[in-house]
Simulated assay, not measured.
Amino acid sequence: MTLTAPPRLLLVHAHPDDESLWTGGTIARYSALGAHVTVVTCTLGEEGEIIPPALQELTADNADQLGGYRVAELRSACAALGVTDHRFLGGIGRWRDSGMVGVEANNHPRALVNGSFDEQVDALSEIISSVKPQVVVTYDAFGGYGHPDHIRAHQITTAAATDVDRVFHAVTSRAATEAGAAALAEIPDLPWRLPAEGELPVTDDAAITTTIDISEHLVAKLRALRAHSTQVSVWQDGAGRASYALSNGIAQPVVQAEYYVLAKGPAEGAETDLFGGLD
């Protein structure tokens, strides 16, 4: 009898909730297929804005307890997605959320962007050496939408993932986002405002190399998004329609696929499967 080891997928994300927002359906899909899925989170997300009014005192400029609260949210989200191997880069609390561009949190001595780049690369390299993933996923060079921690996660991963078969950058499809937003415009009781043209970060579809069908895993993705209740609000109706919003109150569509750009490795077989064509 020949025993075949399961494929191994490792995803590097900046904050709790990013794993669900950017790649939740993909994680749920490959977990359900029996792949070994490892999620690495670089910070605790201490600088995030808080949606529920009752939790406002957790913010960084008040009790500064949001990071610990988001650890619990992340654990629930990972359970919803089928993840059993989650790790914090450098250990829990090693590096802090740097906040958006131009805020005071950028100057915090423990901010991810102020940490030793070499130490961060070494920490991720150690995880990669332990897990031995064939495929690694992170953000593109712009971090998806310009957040300093997303950009640093991209840089760390690019430097550390030198001996894996493939590296992908998670992106959002312009066509799918625009079609999803148009569908939301037909909903009369949506609780948030619709996105303005060009307001949501998207990637031109001509640049997208890989489309992962997550239609059978949307329930898991939505459950994971609901777990991040300080950061994400989820709306659903009885007709199967769904949307979510961050603290900015902009409605975002829940689309049927997640999208990637192949950054390293062979392209053959990768159009609809992160592992397609790999031995």
Score class of each variant (00 low, 15 high):
residue 270 A to N: 01
residue 22 W to M: 12
residue 78 C to P: 10
residue 107 N to R: 15
residue 206 A to V: 14
residue 248 N to P: 12
residue 191 P to L: 09
residue 83 V to H: 03
residue 85 D to R: 13
residue 104 E to P: 13
residue 249 G to M: 06
residue 80 A to W: 11
residue 26 T to C: 03
residue 93 G to P: 06
residue 131 V to G: 09
residue 124 L to M: 09
residue 18 D to F: 03
residue 40 V to W: 00
residue 207 A to M: 14
residue 205 D to A: 05
residue 259 Y to C: 04
residue 48 G to E: 03
residue 39 V to T: 10
residue 35 A to H: 09
residue 53 P to Q: 11
residue 255 V to G: 07
residue 205 D to S: 06
residue 223 R to T: 15
residue 133 P to E: 06
residue 118 D to G: 12
residue 127 I to P: 09
residue 255 V to A: 09
residue 244 Y to P: 06
residue 26 T to K: 02
residue 71 V to A: 11
residue 11 L to H: 02
residue 123 A to R: 05
residue 270 A to C: 05
residue 222 L to I: 07
residue 38 T to G: 01
residue 93 G to C: 10
residue 149 D to F: 00
residue 93 G to R: 06
residue 121 V to D: 01
residue 240 G to H: 08
residue 216 E to D: 14
residue 266 P to L: 09
residue 126 E to Y: 13
residue 70 R to M: 09
residue 81 L to R: 02
residue 263 A to F: 03
residue 242 A to R: 03
residue 153 A to F: 01
residue 191 P to S: 09
residue 118 D to W: 12
residue 240 G to W: 09
residue 247 S to C: 13
residue 243 S to Q: 07
residue 159 A to G: 06
residue 15 H to M: 09
residue 46 E to G: 07
residue 151 I to H: 02
residue 138 T to N: 03
residue 262 L to W: 01
residue 258 E to N: 00
residue 72 A to I: 15
residue 207 A to E: 15
residue 165 D to P: 08
residue 146 G to P: 04
residue 163 D to I: 12
residue 1 M to Y: 14
residue 219 V to K: 14
residue 30 Y to S: 00
residue 65 Q to S: 15
residue 199 E to W: 08
residue 118 D to M: 12
residue 277 G to I: 00
residue 139 Y to N: 00
residue 255 V to S: 10
residue 23 T to F: 02
residue 144 G to Y: 00
residue 264 K to A: 12
residue 36 H to K: 13
residue 223 R to E: 14
residue 120 Q to F: 00
residue 180 G to H: 06
residue 167 V to K: 03
residue 105 A to G: 12
residue 107 N to H: 14
residue 259 Y to G: 05
residue 83 V to I: 11
residue 100 M to G: 10
residue 6 P to E: 05
residue 187 I to G: 11
residue 174 R to P: 11
residue 212 I to K: 00
residue 151 I to D: 01
residue 228 H to N: 08
residue 21 L to Y: 07
residue 137 V to C: 00
residue 120 Q to N: 06
residue 116 S to I: 10
residue 82 G to Q: 07
residue 63 A to D: 14
residue 3 L to Q: 15
residue 97 D to E: 06
residue 233 S to K: 13
residue 179 A to W: 04
residue 41 T to D: 07
residue 211 T to P: 08
residue 31 S to K: 05
residue 77 A to I: 04
residue 91 G to A: 09
